[in-house]
Design a protein around this nucleic acid. Sequence first.
DNA 1: CTAGAAAAATTACGGATGTAATCTTTGGGT
DNA 2: ACCCAAAGATTACATCCGTAATTTTTCTAG
Lengths: 129, 129
Amino acid sequence: MEKKNKLPSISDSEWLVMEVLWNESPKSSHEIIETIDHPTWSPKTIKTLIFRLEKKGLITHEKGRREHQYFPLFEKKQYVKKESNNLIKKLFGGATAPMITHFIENKKLTKSELKEIKSLIESMEGDEK
Amino acid sequence: MEKKNKLPSISDSEWLVMEVLWNESPKSSHEIIETIDHPTWSPKTIKTLIFRLEKKGLITHEKGRREHQYFPLFEKKQYVKKESNNLIKKLFGGATAPMITHFIENKKLTKSELKEIKSLIESMEGDEK
DNA sequence: CTAGAAAAATTACGGATGTAATCTTTGGGT
DNA sequence: ACCCAAAGATTACATCCGTAATTTTTCTAG
């Protein structure tokens, strides 16, 4: 059984639009534009991104009275997994542990964050295999 | 003092070439091609990637007698940091701990990996602030 | 019902990327 | 000294991306 993972790809700019819809949907393009509030983008640009996302099958809409109401067709979770797997593959040849080690060593975490992670690990250790 | 982090970007394909040189350099283009052994790429393609990398200032070469000897101008470490920061920013709004949590929860790690990470954390806890 | 404003759809355009093919130079063998 | 194969440099071309502008459709106010 293969995990074919055939998610359409999302560019960095498009990602910002998806974030908005993942946070709350449906939203009209007008609402999306307001929510994004990107310092340099023209509203036109955001319209384009919405258009492309729909064309790629990442979002869809239903007709509202004045404006379309957009909502996402995939969950953020799936993309978080996909993107992080890609990076692990690229940076660490697919090995997760070195990645985690890298983060712990290089990104100064607070004492309480460390503690939390430690207890998460402890709870995992209890589990299976 | 800002970390301007002005590293030239490396595309996914180019990354494979960089990997080769990061592993061992200098190498001739011919050696790079052999080492990569990508199932579908023509050697021409790899030449192009080398050419682009040099143009972007990521690698350079010195004249050998028959072939150029290429070597990287940046360390992999810098790129690992950059790429992982980008992803953390994109997926978790810049917060490292949730990223780590995500990995620990979603990527089945072995008992010994968990143990190793735990002791790394413990050693960090000892340290500063 | 009609015209103007707002939204949607289409088109634009340069740079990056994946993936090569072609043209040019040069070191080595005869 | 000269020619050719191999290496290097240049060019190609379709697609994706960032970033819009232009064109078309459609609701709503008169």
